[in-house]
Amino acid sequence: MSSLTVFYIGLFYFATFVLVAGLTYRIYEYWKVPAPLNIPTTPAPTTRIGVSFRMFREVALFESLFKSNKWIWVFGYMFHIGLALVLLRHVRYFSEPLCSFLVFIQPFGKYASFVMVAGLAGLWARRFLVDRVRYISTPSDHLILALLIAIGLSGMSMTFVAHTDIVNLKGFVRGMMMLNFQPLPTDANLLVHLFLVALLMIVFPVSKLLHAPGVFFSPTRNQVDNPREKRHLAPWAAALERDNG
């Protein structure tokens, strides 16, 4: 087994560990910090089910962003929906045998990559063209877009330009899952693609990508508008009440 294969196996175990452990820790943190006051942005749903619908619209349709700015919504939606289809298509490299859904999704997933990269390019263009967005952009904002576009383009190059040895790649991936290690194909675009994906997984729990779990914990979106009917009391606020009467 080549040292390159060993390096990539180590890299992906490490990246997976950081992603899973890091996100688990963040979610635990968000969960643990109390929301001491009822602060949904109103008008807000008055039932838990209503809040689930609000959260669904927020996550699946980007409702607030749609109200806010149609350009960001269009580019952001293109990127996220493209990414979702591309990720679904990639399940075939982890799964054996292939279910009919994965066969069905394959062409959509392939061409969704264009939508994804176009969306990212639009978002990046705004960072240069709109003075307000230029002002707030940090180097990491640019780099994360560069990273995602590079992942997209390197992946697309294998689908549309120079195919990699997909059978051996799947063997490598399944080998890591089953602890039965197989050699990794050595095409440059594949190595670049995998390296950048691992990098993305590693920065996820310490970057703004935390918006993904964060939105579910946002009190302005996930709280029920029922403060006259229900008393919300954080543990530290209850302690304050006991001490002060």
Binding site: G76, I136, K208
Partner: peptide
């Protein structure tokens, strides 16, 4: 943590 600097 959650802000992505989208500019909305």
């Amino acid at each position: 943590d959650a802000c992505v600097h989208c500019g909305a």
